[in-house]
């Protein structure tokens, strides 16, 4: 799935990384617990979360993720966007709640990619 498609599906707003919206991503995960995100060994490209601190960006960096989606329309502080820019990560904001946002992406073919899945 292209990052652009995520924007359409989640009615998201681009907070940074406009030049990377054509890139493809193949898996995603949604969590507000960073260690849960860090537990999956497989490639994860998109992180959906309701948290908006710097550790979200650092967690994404650790896992080589390409895109962060802040759900429930949460507005991250400027330093979060700055760090994401510096690290080359696309940041989106969606008004959807976590469950619905994950469901929409899953339904459209973006799967989990965790250790237990295909």
């Amino acid at each position: 799935m292209k990052i652009k498609t995520i924007i359409d599906l989640l009615e998201a707003e681009v907070l940074c990384g406009e030049d990377m919206l054509e890139e493809h991503v193949y898996s995603a995960c949604g969590s507000d617990m960073m260690s849960d995100v860090l537990a999956y060994v497989k490639e994860q490209a998109v992180l959906l979360t309701g948290l908006i601190n710097l550790q979200v960006v650092r967690t994404a960096v650790m896992m080589d993720m390409k895109c962060i989606v802040f759900v429930r329309g949460k507005n991250p502080p400027e330093e979060v966007i700055e760090l994401a820019k510096e690290c080359g990560i696309v940041v989106l904001r969606s008004p959807e709640r976590m469950y619905v946002a994950c469901g929409k992406l899953y339904e459209n073919g973006l799967r989990g990619g965790g250790v237990d899945e295909e």
Binding site: D32, M33, M34, S35, D36, L38, A39, V41, T49, L51, N53, Q55, V56, T59
Partner: peptide, 16 residues
């Protein structure tokens, strides 16, 4: 926990 930590997964992850 409200900062996104405290799932009790850190040490097991480090081990793994």
């Amino acid at each position: 926990r409200s900062l996104g930590f405290g799932a009790g997964m850190g040490l097991p992850n480090m081990k793994r």
